[in-house]
């Protein structure tokens, strides 16, 4: 599903440049649930942003579902993001003047799905995350866990190939974190490929594979026995 070869990325900070990713080789199969771990500054978020086409790579190659991601213009990148990827952010990033349902329906709108179908689908995904009766509420009327569940529903609405989550539990307490992880595991059980960036070991343990990043290189890449989040909920 994802294939990365010899990925380099550096940022220019005034006169000196900061080499963040120093040759990453990494691939993900369909249906995997991968945790990318590392301390802050290890380059894990940068890696995720490059995977999400929100940032550009300097060197190396990136192939997503057989499509080489290279020299994209913004229009094409937007198109690929919409078709291939779903995003979940640490700070939820819901649009605060739109209701939960409208937020979920947004990626479908960019796919030019009809109004009625959009609403039906959005409701379906809200139901999956257990928030059907909150559909008409604005984000500031929801709790943190609920917001993140809406964000997950939004990420799933476009039926992406890969779900990318950047510290999805970073702003939540442990109980809600487990609820969210439970949801993510259930989505993974349906066969969806998911990448999670986290620095919490207990969250990483709930994935099927842990990739450890340090100073821009992968120091460890291991498959683990998945801890089900449902037992903590």
């Amino acid at each position: 599903m994802i294939e990365i070869k010899d990925l380099h990325k550096s940022y220019k900070m005034g006169s000196n440049s900061l080499h963040v990713l120093k040759g990453i080789n990494f691939s993900v199969e369909e249906g995997e649930l991968v945790a990318i771990m590392g301390s802050s500054g290890s380059g894990k978020s940068t890696l995720l942003n490059i995977l999400g086409m929100l940032d550009e790579l300097d060197e190396g190659s990136y192939v997503l579902d057989g499509v080489p991601i290279k020299n994209l213009n913004e229009t094409k990148a937007a198109n690929y993001r919409n078709k291939f990827l779903g995003f979940v952010f640490q700070s939820f990033n819901l649009i605060n003047y739109k209701s939960a349902m409208e937020n979920v329906a947004l990626p479908l709108y960019y796919q030019k799905v009809g109004r009625k179908e959009r609403q039906e689908k959005a409701l379906k995904y809200l139901e999956q995350v257990g928030l059907k009766e909150w559909a008409t509420h604005l984000p500031n009327e929801l709790s943190g866990g609920q917001k993140q569940r809406v964000a997950i529903a939004r990420a799933m609405a476009a039926e992406p190939k890969v779900l990318l989550a950047d510290e999805p539990t970073g702003a939540l307490d442990s109980k809600t974190s487990y609820e969210v992880m439970d949801l993510i595991q259930k989505i993974n059980d349906q066969g969806n490929t998911i990448l999670i960036v986290t620095h919490e070991p207990d969250i990483a343990d709930m994935c099927k594979r842990i990739v450890h990043l340090k100073d821009g290189v992968i120091i460890e890449d291991k498959k683990v026995e998945q801890v089900r989040a449902a037992q903590y909920v």
Partner: peptide, 16 residues
């Protein structure tokens, strides 16, 4: 700015 960034992450095209 942030909202526009989110929209683009969700796949809204620049001309839109």
């Amino acid at each position: 700015t942030k909202e526009i960034g989110i929209r683009r992450a969700l796949g809204e095209k620049p001309w839109s």
